[in-house]
Design a protein around this nucleic acid. Sequence first.
DNA 1: GTGAAAGCGCTAACAA
DNA 2: TTGTTAGCGCTTTCAC
Lengths: 345, 345
Amino acid sequence: MRVSLKDVAAHAGVSIKTVSNVVNNYQHVTPAMRERVQRSIDALGYQPNLAARHLRKGRTGIIALALPELGNPYFAELAAAVIDAAAAHDYIVLLDHTGGRREQEILVSQGFRARVIDGLILSPIELEPEDLSDRAEKVPLVLLGERDYDLPYDHIAIDNVAAARTAVRHLTGLGRREVAFIGARRGRSEPAQLRVRGWREELTAAGLPADDGLVAATDGWGHADGAAAMTRILDSGRRPDAVFAYNDPMAIGAMRVLHERGLRVPEDIAVVGFDDVVEGRFGAVTLTSVSPDKEAIGRLAVESVLTRLGGNEVLTEPRRVRADHRLVERESTVGRAAPGGTGQG
Amino acid sequence: MRVSLKDVAAHAGVSIKTVSNVVNNYQHVTPAMRERVQRSIDALGYQPNLAARHLRKGRTGIIALALPELGNPYFAELAAAVIDAAAAHDYIVLLDHTGGRREQEILVSQGFRARVIDGLILSPIELEPEDLSDRAEKVPLVLLGERDYDLPYDHIAIDNVAAARTAVRHLTGLGRREVAFIGARRGRSEPAQLRVRGWREELTAAGLPADDGLVAATDGWGHADGAAAMTRILDSGRRPDAVFAYNDPMAIGAMRVLHERGLRVPEDIAVVGFDDVVEGRFGAVTLTSVSPDKEAIGRLAVESVLTRLGGNEVLTEPRRVRADHRLVERESTVGRAAPGGTGQG
DNA sequence: GTGAAAGCGCTAACAA
DNA sequence: TTGTTAGCGCTTTCAC
């Protein structure tokens, strides 16, 4: 059987409390006593039982992270950032994926799958504001991603409208006149709305067309969806000279279609993605992309959860935190002369 | 405060045990009583405290999954498979990443980071057999990946030697005479050894060269490492007509270098990767790759852990489980005529 | 500075 | 079929 505090106490000839004091680094223990107890701990190979500690303290040391899908490298990299940030605070991360489906997101937000957690970081896709309004769970919830819910939860995101405008401005600055948007969402919710808005605002400001014929809606957000959307636009007879995609996988899928059709990137059509995924740096044509500071997002999300956990949840206003982003220019817009072909920049 | 069994019992006017019976779906409860209790549960919004249950039962309902890195889409997809398989058994997954570094892998295997788990699935890179021999943890451990440790732990993997031979045979079958291997590992451990062995065996059997000049060692296994390795081979003066890479990201990195140098794939150099990552299906040249059955690996790993958990850990021999794999032929070896360009096949 | 004892919420004997 | 109770291993008052 496992050795418990009691065993150690018996072995050292002291009370349970004293052992506990040593284990928890309590201040007022004489060095001699500390060493004596420590010797017993080592001798017996004692390891504290976390379940008991959790039961007693009401904390588990676990936060849950619920992402749409790990297959998208952006989310995989984000998960890595969250895990590291949590580790810095001695927290471990329970991972779940929702497939971006509303019911799953609701279940997760209600703590259905994981009731052993101190907090939850959720990156929703289809979730609607009302789904969160009657949340019974009392563990802190932090939202990630581009949708703005205006609910009493912290929210970490980059400025999606500004980021989209920057991307489009880059294209118009290169002389592109007809910029398509790939990755608007079919159905009721429109998670891409901020990026679509930025796209539209920037084009309108430049006096360029931003009509619906230039927007391709998709069901999902993978390579195949991007390829399908690009195909649809080309088949519609429209011939944009630039494409702004909701994310990198879609941009890469679109580039594949352009390649198959013999259209050159960027000469015939320039392409900009979003997320700055590693994959975009190694294609035959490297991909210009908006690069969110994933590391910061992960860190801020963890800190946000842990702060709420500290107890000021009710007191403090919900915070809207803006993480940084920047545009990384590569071959898909500026051609082979692009600086740092396969590098970071 | 949280509502407990006691509160529900008081509310329903029954004993704690009866509520517990209802919560745990115990057989012998009269329907009337069950409904009455259920009504109180709903009214109070009762949720069982898992920490307490855990303390009592000694089970947490959590298994840990430790992977080298999430950035590699193979591992991300594998993580998704494990999460789904675990969910099917009402288990949730704690995720950790080791960076493929030995010390981290040792810490994880000793349960350092997560002591609240029922079992552990570990995909080691640098871990050495002796690191596991004095494992104090008593929770079941299941190993993933290509290294064969010959230790008393279950091990789920594909037949790497056979897979590598299949890949190389595909290349020689296409008339390639000089097949390089990218992705052997520098340093003491050699996780790629089975794939290198398969590569060597197949070439030797075909009477073709398999000398060290054709093997490029790398520090890591990302796109950049593949690119660097390819560069080194070309700069060495060697001009292979085919490359077999340890994994898809490396193969894609290598293809980028070939592209930059004006070498055509597959005409000048054919390329085969490993893992069949989505990304490989959407490049300018789609990638032929060995496709392991990730879904099966995830499922088998979870089942393996849970079986051991069942208690027969000591009784049963450690199992070596072989998951399936197959070669998916795409443009990087057979050219544009390849069937199913961007599709699954 | 250290010890004794209560109790976190739950499950499982055992009793009724 | 339902109730009573002990105790999982720990932390935490409160004495000493």
